[in-house]
């Protein structure tokens, strides 16, 4: 297992370097200009000077190499400096965003809390709702509960969040006035009052995202349960005279969870990717909103860094999912 993990980690390195190069070249080839959102009243000569000040005068390869060195060598040392109070990276050029003229990683760190709170919580809530629904729907297949479950998950999966989000805002924020429509990222939870405010402002975005996540995972759960319910070992368990409750919750559920755990693990990187649309709708302004505004502003260092971080997370969680699969299912051995 250990050698397998090490081998996978080592092969991940050239894969990631290749991914970073592809991302960089794709962004380079894409049309657009970081000064496009500057007003037309700025004359062309001034624009040209601004462009050179952004470092756009250098050739593509130089810029790629600089970015790569900053990402793998300078930035980790900056993190180390932050933890240990050392000065390894003092005075070295970091990856700087074109829109903010500020280090990309500082802004990413600033955005992570609200994304983890809202999108991460929605994922957790989604999983917690999905598993019991999936189990019950499978056990009572074609019952009214299963039919409604199927209908709701179809709805949750097919209705886009820009529709369901705005719908919830119109109902619960505009008409009923129960929840705010704008997420306040400066709110700090210090007492009961601010905690209630935090819960209220998280309620709508979490509801929208959890519905989406739950509908996906509950289908997986149901399918996996149905696969197992017809297995021989279930018949054996029933024949032994075990109560149905124990058969389902102990034998079938544990075996059915194996593929679901993999699916859930593979979905974790999407939390960090943020929920671009939902974050925009509720103005959560997390990583998803950061990415989309950077794309609009043609802030290539920001887009490049964020997409590469997502790539790392996806490769990493693929590995974690594989390892978990091996741990949970003794039949599978990689060595």
């Amino acid at each position: 297992m250990l050698t397998y993990t090490l081998r996978r980690l080592l092969t991940a390195i050239p894969t990631l370097i290749f991914i970073s190069l592809v991302i960089f070249l794709l962004l380079e080839a894409a049309p657009g200009d970081p000064l496009a959102d500057q007003p037309l009243t700025i004359p062309p000569e001034v624009r040209e000077k601004m462009r050179i000040a952004l470092g756009l005068g250098e050739p593509v390869w130089v810029r790629y190499w600089k970015w790569l060195v900053q990402f793998v060598w300078v930035e980790p040392r900056v993190v180390l400096d932050g933890w240990l109070g050392t000065g390894f990276a003092a005075g070295e050029a970091r990856i700087v965003s074109w829109q903010f003229r500020a280090p990309v990683f500082d802004i990413i760190w600033q955005r992570i809390p609200q994304t983890l709170w809202v999108v991460g919580m929605a994922y957790l809530v989604g999983v917690l709702i999905a598993i019991p629904i999936g189990v019950y729907s499978a056990v009572r297949q074609y019952s009214w509960f299963d039919q409604i479950g199927t209908f709701v998950s179809m709805l949750g999966f097919s209705v886009p969040t820009f529709f369901s989000g705005v719908l919830l805002i119109v109902i619960f924020a505009v008409n009923l006035g129960w929840f705010p429509s704008i997420y306040d990222t400066t709110l700090r939870v210090t007492d009961w009052d601010s905690f209630v405010r935090q819960v209220r402002q998280m309620a709508l975005p979490i509801a929208v995202l959890a519905l989406f996540n739950a509908s996906q995972i509950s289908r997986f759960m149901r399918a996996s349960m149905l696969d197992n319910l017809n297995q021989d070992y279930v018949r054996t368990a029933r024949a032994k005279g075990l109560p149905e409750r124990r058969v389902v919750l102990l034998h079938v559920l544990r075996n059915s969870l194996i593929p679901v755990v993999t699916v859930v693990a593979l979905g974790v990187p999407t939390i960090f990717g943020g929920a671009i649309i939902t974050e925009q709708v509720f103005k959560v302004n997390g990583l998803g909103q950061l990415l989309i505004t950077a794309i609009y502003a043609n802030d290539l260092p920001m887009v490049q860094t964020l997409t590469f971080i997502f790539a790392i997370l996806i490769v990493l969680f693929n590995l974690i999912a594989d390892i978990l699969y091996g741990l949970l299912d003794p039949r599978i051995r990689y060595d």
Partner: peptide, 15 residues
């Protein structure tokens, strides 16, 4: 044409 391209002034773009 997308605004970021249209107003972008990239001499390499025809748009």
């Amino acid at each position: 044409i997308d605004a970021s391209v249209f107003f972008g002034g990239d001499p390499g773009s025809p748009d």
